[in-house]
Amino acid sequence: MKAGRFELTSAVVRDLLEQQLKATRDEVAEFETGMLAGSLFARASAGLADGTIR
């Protein structure tokens, strides 16, 4: 039995909180609506639709 080879890699990352943007209530509501609509459409296209959309 041969032992597997593993490679270690590294990545440069930065803290996203430093880049945090201030959003208005309307922008947050628009984002949430878009995310909900996207997930509902994805479920429907996958045949996993339920009574959420009437």
Rank of each mutant, 00 (worst) to 15 (best):
L17P: 01
I53V: 15
E27N: 04
V13R: 11
A37E: 06
G34T: 01
R43D: 07
V12W: 12
A46N: 12
T9M: 06
A42F: 02
L17D: 11
E32F: 05
V28C: 11
S39H: 12
T52Y: 09
E7M: 07
M1W: 05
G34R: 09
D50Q: 13
T52M: 09
V13K: 03
T33H: 03
S39V: 14
S10L: 13
S45D: 10
E7K: 09
S39T: 11
A49I: 03
R43P: 00
A23W: 06
L21R: 14
D50R: 06
D15Y: 11
F31G: 00
G51E: 13
A46T: 02
E7H: 09
K2T: 11
D15R: 13
Q19Y: 12
R5K: 15
T24R: 11
L48T: 00
L40E: 02
T9L: 14
T52C: 05
R54K: 11
M35L: 15
E18F: 06
E30T: 12
L16E: 03
M1I: 04
E30C: 07
L40A: 04
L17V: 05
E32L: 08
E32Y: 00
E30W: 03
A29R: 14
K22P: 00
R43C: 03
L40M: 08
A37Y: 08
F31R: 11
Q20S: 09
M35A: 10
A44Y: 01
A23Y: 14
L48N: 12
A46L: 14
V12E: 13
Q19R: 04
S45C: 02
E32N: 10
A42S: 10
T52F: 05
L40V: 06
S39D: 02
S45M: 06
I53A: 08
A11I: 01
L48R: 13
R5W: 02
L40H: 03
I53S: 03
R25W: 05
E18K: 13
V12S: 06
K2H: 01
L21A: 08
V28D: 03
R14A: 08
G51Q: 13
T52G: 02
F31C: 04
G47A: 07
Q20E: 15
R5P: 02
T52I: 04
E7N: 02
T33E: 12
L8F: 10
A3V: 07
G47Q: 00
A37C: 01
K2E: 12
L40D: 01
D50A: 08
D26C: 00
G47S: 02
D26A: 15
S10K: 10
G34P: 01
R25P: 03
R54V: 05
M35Q: 04
E18N: 10
A37F: 11
R25D: 14
E18W: 13
Q20A: 15
L8I: 07
V12Q: 07
T24G: 14
G38H: 10
A42K: 14
F6C: 12
S45K: 06
F41E: 02
E18H: 12
R25A: 15
L48K: 14
R25N: 15
A11F: 04
R5F: 09
A37L: 15
